[in-house]
């Protein structure tokens, strides 16, 4: 029986080297490709008829579109729609990586801190670059809250720290949720096997099995919720870049 951590091992399926960089095709790569293929295939097949009255699949694609679009609109406004493809891609990527991780035997791409951190840094990087492009040095006003001047020496460091914490929290939230959920699932599922192997104790093995079932449902919820949280926070942070300091 495999340990609860073993499911996170990155296994090289095909060693590749690209200009001195290790670009091996791993199980993580395979699931990234699968997530992208599923997301693209879903959007393509759902919309292939471009029906005026949508069928089930097209409705799903349109609902997903409207859902993410309204998230972007609510948080940034109409001028934020230029970031809509980014937020939508992030949402779909995280969602499908999370959900593919729930497939038995699947690999959870988002349980790797390096992946979530890369996505978070992408978001924060865009926020900083676009914010400075739009507002120049005025973007720094983001760190000057609207408080009595005497409080500023206290507030500015707090604002700076909270800004710097954003990529950290954005990446760790997703990573930790996925990691902890899958460890918990594996442990309770492991209990079932251990108890069955332990003779008379096997009689209580349905208990952890029930818990595993409940946890699986919870994890599916978490998978969707974390994708949504990632998309919402991305929109909230992008709002700072678009609208600057007036909040």
């Amino acid at each position: 029986m495999a340990g609860p951590i073993e499911q996170f091992n990155v296994k090289t399926l095909m060693p590749l080297d690209f200009a001195g960089i290790d670009a091996s095709f791993t199980n993580a790569s395979a699931f990234m490709v699968a997530a992208v293929a599923l997301a693209s295939g879903f959007m393509y097949f759902a919309m292939r008829h471009r029906a005026l009255v949508p069928g089930r699949l097209q409705s799903m694609a349109e609902v997903t579109y409207e859902f993410v679009a309204s998230t972007v609109r609510d948080n940034i406004g109409e001028e934020g729609m230029k970031f809509f493809p980014l937020v939508f891609s992030l949402f779909m990527f995280v969602l499908l990586c999370n959900l593919l991780g729930m497939v038995p035997g699947g690999y959870t791409v988002t349980s790797q801190l390096v992946v979530t951190a890369a996505l978070a840094l992408l978001v924060i990087g865009i926020v900083i670059v676009y914010g400075v492009m739009q507002h120049g040095a005025g973007f720094l006003k983001l760190f000057v809250p609207d408080v009595p001047p005497i409080l500023l020496p206290l507030m500015i460091p707090i604002e700076v720290i909270s800004f710097l914490a954003r990529p950290l929290t954005l990446s760790v939230r997703l990573f930790a949720n996925m990691l902890a959920g899958h460890i918990a699932l594996k442990i309770f599922a492991g209990f079932v096997a251990s108890l069955l192997a332990a003779g008379a104790w096997g009689i209580i093995s349905p208990l952890p099995l029930l818990l595993t079932t409940a946890l699986t449902a919870l994890e599916v919820l978490v998978a969707v919720l974390q994708a949504y949280v990632f998309a919402v926070l991305t929109s909230v942070y992008l709002n700072d870049a678009v609208h600057g300091a007036h909040h």
């Binding site: 990155v10 090289t12 590749l16 690209f18 960089i21 290790d22 670009a23 091996s24 095709f25 791993t26 993580a28 790569s29 990234m32 490709v33 997530a35 992208v36 990527f93 791409v109 790797q112 390096v114 992946v115 890369a118 996505l119």
Partner: peptide
């Protein structure tokens, strides 16, 4: 494992 993951993340 960071480098291959980052490379494939960027690609995908």
């Amino acid at each position: 494992t960071f480098a291959p993951q980052l490379v494939w993340l960027a690609i995908t």
